Amino acid sequence: MELQLKLIGFLLVILAVLHAAFARYFNWRHEFAAVSLINRQMMYVHTFFIAFTVLLMGLLCLSSAGELISTPLGRKLALGCGAFWLARLLVQFFGYSAVLWQGKRFETVVHVTFSVLWAYLSAVFVLIGLG
């Protein structure tokens, strides 16, 4: 499981860094032009803090995989991470409309890829958390 956590740590650091490109990729400057300043800034700030949380989770896995597996506090943290990623997996299916990806090759690949990733993260963290 330690190797799984190291792999997860690497993937989460990459995912956190990818968040830096969201505004440009999703054309937020144009998309949010008509949105109030507070709503626009909330999107940027929340995106930053999601990326920061994902980065810290990745660094935790890279630096403390053994402790996450072998200590009571580590297993509790792992269980919390499992709950976080399980919630993200559920949002993948119930928070986003299927209209966004169905019938679109690239979007379907992204949807399936991230669904598998969220399931993998959830499973590893929950299994570690439950001992």
Results as ranks from 00 to 15, higher is better:
residue 58 G to V: 01
residue 58 G to K: 00
residue 61 C to I: 05
residue 61 C to M: 09
residue 62 L to E: 05
residue 62 L to R: 00
residue 63 S to F: 05
residue 63 S to M: 09
residue 63 S to P: 00
residue 63 S to L: 14
residue 67 E to A: 13
residue 67 E to F: 11
residue 67 E to Y: 11
residue 68 L to W: 01
residue 68 L to Q: 04
residue 69 I to S: 05
residue 70 S to R: 06
residue 70 S to E: 12
residue 70 S to F: 07
residue 71 T to N: 12
residue 71 T to V: 12
residue 71 T to W: 06
residue 71 T to Y: 08
residue 72 P to V: 08
residue 73 L to G: 08
residue 73 L to V: 07
residue 74 G to P: 07
residue 76 K to I: 00
residue 78 A to Q: 09
residue 79 L to E: 08
residue 81 C to S: 06
residue 84 F to T: 07
residue 89 L to G: 05
residue 89 L to H: 05
residue 89 L to R: 01
residue 89 L to F: 15
residue 90 L to D: 12
residue 90 L to P: 10
residue 90 L to Q: 12
residue 91 V to C: 02
residue 92 Q to P: 02
residue 92 Q to S: 14
residue 93 F to I: 13
residue 95 G to D: 05
residue 95 G to E: 04
residue 97 S to F: 04
residue 98 A to G: 10
residue 98 A to I: 09
residue 99 V to S: 04
residue 100 L to Y: 09
residue 100 L to I: 09
residue 102 Q to D: 06
residue 102 Q to P: 03
residue 103 G to H: 03
residue 103 G to D: 05
residue 103 G to K: 04
residue 105 R to L: 14
residue 106 F to W: 12
residue 107 E to Y: 13
residue 107 E to D: 12
residue 108 T to R: 03
residue 111 H to F: 15
residue 111 H to K: 15
residue 112 V to M: 14
residue 113 T to W: 11
residue 113 T to R: 09
residue 115 S to V: 11
residue 116 V to T: 06
residue 116 V to E: 06
